[in-house]
Design a protein around this nucleic acid. Structure first.
Length: 563
RNA sequence: GGCCCCAUCGUCUAGCCUGGUCCAGGACACCAGGUUUUCAUCCUGGUAACGCGGGUUCAAAUCCCGCUGGGGUCACCA
């Protein structure tokens, strides 16, 4: 038995919602830790005072909990009766803003050992030098101007409290990273300059904080997005400088939109802008946005609206914005199992066959926790295919028991579709489940399947074509059958899907016609259209009284030729 | 632009390390049939890919080089 357990971590910065790409990183970190029998740690990287917020942290924690990506160490969260996080290993706190002393200890140690030094240039001075370099078409690197100042003097100015940053002395040697996904990656020393490890405001930069925390928190495996690959040599060098062990690294490929662009919250803004332009809306259609801001937003490509405002616009225009954050997918009616499954499969392959010889693609969180391995990760970037995700979601929904489906659907409706939650209780939804489950791809489009039940009996709009085909065509044969069946139906004792089906069937037999001859007229009469769930389910959902009322009204309208 | 990473059907991928069993397998999407009272589900079948050019070899999707293409990164953001 080894004494150091595997520890992975997910370390978001709380500057917005949890992005779908972040969720994938978190999921795979979680899976890796679980598979190794280790721990998954969550840390909040809030060293950017300007951009971090408490509400973001809360949102990220909840999104992770909702997905079922539970953390062993980290901020505590109560979610649906469970508590996540805590500090049983005593390596907290898990908010970087609360760990400043720890970072300063490390920074002071580096300064004492002359591995780091204070520098006194202002941001403006550096910016000017950077611009010069760009104009001269040479790569910008910090010129170590501060090192020209004698060490003694530097230290004195530091002690006197002169505003400064602290820079790390980057050694002049190539660095090779042994990446578990990409293999050996070697980067030459001239790619790096003496990067800043403590900002003017006294907060550490990402590089320093991440190095200190990973070491102090016992993180053994760092799994992160490929955008961090170039940072790794900095972290490795810092670890050496501080006398820490090096964790194992694995950089995973990034995910993009189908058109190759980055999946970013800007996509939502773009989609909303386009919809407003297409609709030729001259002024703001919603209260929360005044006309002047609206006009400015519309013509200025770089101007972006707040997420809430965009959603209000989308609701008004009856369009859906592209899902980018976990919250977007949740609202759109995706369920965690499908999202996790799809996300894991995007860039990872279990390399396992099903019994029928096809590749294993549908698997659970338990499977991931048992079988995830870095060896199945692909190296290349991949595109996020919403259609396949939708198919996974539909499959997961269809495989839910009626009770489980009803529970999910009602929970979803309570949060995102109040009228639906009020019209149907969870137990109503159990009865609806057989009709809805195989006909919706998301919880959100379940409502469309039973739209006919939302309309009052005397407000059904009839589809002329369907009425003609089912009722009028062939000398009103359909209408006659419907009237005949209406009278039988009035006497039905039992009104369950099964009993209705069998009685319709018996009726068809007695009249010596096929099922369709009576089923379609009935369907059209009660729903207004030729498409609905199975006849038994459709009628049972409405109830006998409503069905009779609808048939009567339909017959009346059809005879009067008002459809 | 410098540096770094990557490259199989429209998309996600298996195969590549340990060349031959691959005129390349699976999934989603698409198309055509079938089951069904409509729709959906479900079932069966089909279209569809090794980016290009050089090598190495008896033999290359598999190894090497170049090109092209995609991406990342060059902050007192993380």
């Amino acid at each position: 038995m080894t004494t150091t357990p595997t520890v992975t971590r997910f370390a978001p910065s709380p500057t917005g919602h949890l992005h779908i790409g972040g969720a994938r990183t978190a999921l795979l970190c979680w899976a890796y830790a679980k598979q190794a029998g280790g721990r998954f740690l969550l840390r909040i990287e809030d060293t950017d005072q300007q951009r971090s917020s408490e509400s973001s942290t809360r949102g990220i924690l909840e999104d992770l909990a909702w997905l079922g990506i539970t953390w062993d160490d980290g901020p505590e969260l109560e979610f649906e009766g469970h508590t996540f996080g805590g500090d049983t290993r005593g390596v907290g706190p898990y908010y970087q803003a609360q760990r400043i002393d720890l970072y300063n200890d490390a920074i002071n140690k580096l300064i004492d050992e002359d591995k780091a030094y204070p520098a006194f240039e202002t941001p403006e001075e550096l910016e000017a030098k950077r611009k010069e370099a760009i104009a001269a078409k040479v790569g910008y690197k910090y010129d170590r101007a501060a090192l020209v100042i004698p060490r003694e003097e530097r230290m004195k100015r530091l002690a006197d409290g002169e505003p400064h940053v602290v820079r790390f002395k980057m050694p002049e040697e190539p660095i090779t990273v042994e990446d578990q996904i990409l293999g050996e990656v070697t980067i030459k020393p001239d790619e790096f300059d003496d990067f800043i490890i403590r900002k003017r405001d006294g907060f550490p930069t990402y590089h320093l904080a991440v190095t200190v925390d990973d070491a102090l928190m016992g993180v053994t495996h760092v799994l992160r997005g490929q955008e961090h690959l170039i940072n790794t040599p900095r972290h490795v060098t810092l670890q050496t400088g501080l006398g820490y062990e090096h964790p194992v690294y694995a950089h995973m490929p990034l995910i993009f939109n189908p058109d190759g662009s980055k999946m970013s919250k800007r996509d939502k803004d773009k989609a909303a802008k386009k919809a407003c332009k297409d609709a030729k809306l001259e002024s703001s259609p919603i209260d929360r946005l005044d006309d002047a801001s609206y006009t400015e937003w519309l013509k200025n490509k770089t101007r972006q609206l707040e997420s809430d405002t965009l959603m209000a616009l989308a609701a008004h225009l009856q369009i859906s914005l592209p899902e980018i954050d976990v919250e977007d997918f949740r609202r759109a009616g995706y369920i965690p199992e499908a999202l996790n499954n799809y996300l894991a499969l995007l860039g990872w392959n279990p390399k396992t066959k099903n019994e029928d010889g096809t590749d294993l693609e549908h698997f659970s969180m338990d499977y991931l926790a048992q079988s995830f391995a870095l060896s199945g990760m692909s190296k290349g970037q991949s595109k996020f295919d919403r259609t396949k995700l939708l198919s996974f979601n539909a499959d997961e929904i269809a495989n839910l028991s009626d009770e489980a489906f009803a529970k999910r659907w009602h929970q979803w409706a309570t949060k995102y579709d109040q009228p639906l939650a009020q019209r149907f209780s969870e137990s109503d939804m159990v009865d609806l489940a057989p009709a809805v489950k195989t006909r919706c791809k998301t919880l959100a489009d379940g409502r469309g399947v039973i739209a006919f039940a939302f309309i009052a009996d005397n407000e059904i709009e009839y589809d002329g074509k369907a009425v003609h085909k089912a009722l009028i065509k062939g000398e009103h044969k359909g209408l006659e059958l419907l009237k005949a069946f209406r009278d039988e139906l009035a006497g039905f004792e039992s009104f369950t899907p099964e009993s209705i089906e069998s009685q319709v069937s018996a009726f068809a037999e007695s009249k010596e016609v096929g099922m369709g001859k009576i089923a379609q007229p009935l369907r059209v009469a009660v729903t207004g259209a030729g498409v609905s769930p199975s006849l038994g389910q459709t009628l049972a959902i409405l109830g006998k009284e409503s069905v009779l009322a609808r048939i009567d009204r339909c017959v009346e309208l059809a005879l009067a030729e008002r459809v």
